[in-house]
Amino acid sequence: MMVTSLTKSISEISGNRDTNLSNDFFLPKGEQMENIISIKDVFYKYPGSDNYAVNGISLDIKANEWISIVGKNGSGKTTLTRLIDGLEECESGSIEIDGVVTDEDTIWDARKKIGIVFQNPDHQFVGATVEDDVAFGLENQGMPRDEMITAVDRALKMVDMQDFKKRDPQSLSGGQKQRVAIAGVLAIKPQIIIMDESTSMLDPEGRKTVINLIKQLRTEQNLTVISITHDIEETQLSDRIIVLNSGKIVKDTVPADLYNLGPQLIEYGLEEPFTNLVAAGLQDVIDFDGYITEKGLIAKLCELNSKK
């Protein structure tokens, strides 16, 4: 028992771990998952700007995948998600959502499949009370009132905010507001949830609850998660990390591979994983080669400690 866990940990330490591990975890062998989002050669330039904010991006995202999009501010992360949701229209290229190419006519149906939770909890709260806000998306779809009542209750229950139904937004904490925003998104039963730096303005407690909530909902509701973030811990939850720089994809890889880059991560608007920093500080004691998980690091240190 001891031995097996140790060897497993050591295999985790070695940089060249099987890159398909995380995908295999969710996909039974031989079953090919459909692309829920398929982006082809997309270009976009903001009016009045000379540079392309999105400069030729092609990207396929599979159903139930958790994708982190990272990159420095201004690298095109938010623009990309806005293009996916049709909030901006691409200059050239195409975006397919659940098999349908989006255009002016199909975008409204596509939006029913996508929910976005934005950065500032105060700037996305439309309703005067929690329940009103959750109902907003349903009202837009013209759902009959009695159906809305069940849908709102169901969504609030999923984010554990049912006791706050009648409260006004000003009386909620940042984390609670974001949970309401998530409920508003869940109410329309989307297939894709986009987190646009949704945890960056929260305190550590709020951040933890929101991340755990998304983790849990992703499995329960079979959601595809696209998360824009600067938080290295958040990226560790994802199956795949897309690095953007000046509107281009410069890396598309699994977390462990990306963390191998070490100090170069800073160029991508990320900090190094804590374990990397510790390992770097222990360089003269032991050779570390690239990214190491916490479990792996602890195992390695225990091994050394017992040898002395």
Binding site: F274, L277, V278, G281, L282, D284, V285, E294, I298, L301, C302, L304, N305, S306, K308
Partner: peptide
């Protein structure tokens, strides 16, 4: 603290990375 659970002993609780690595080195060597 996680290392302490695995049998490491620390003279004082390290709160920065440099304190942590110094303590670990001392422990191992």
């Amino acid at each position: 603290e996680k290392l302490a659970d695995k049998g490491f002993t620390f003279s004082k609780l390290p709160i920065t990375i440099s304190e942590l690595t110094a303590e670990i080195k001392e422990q191992i060597h």
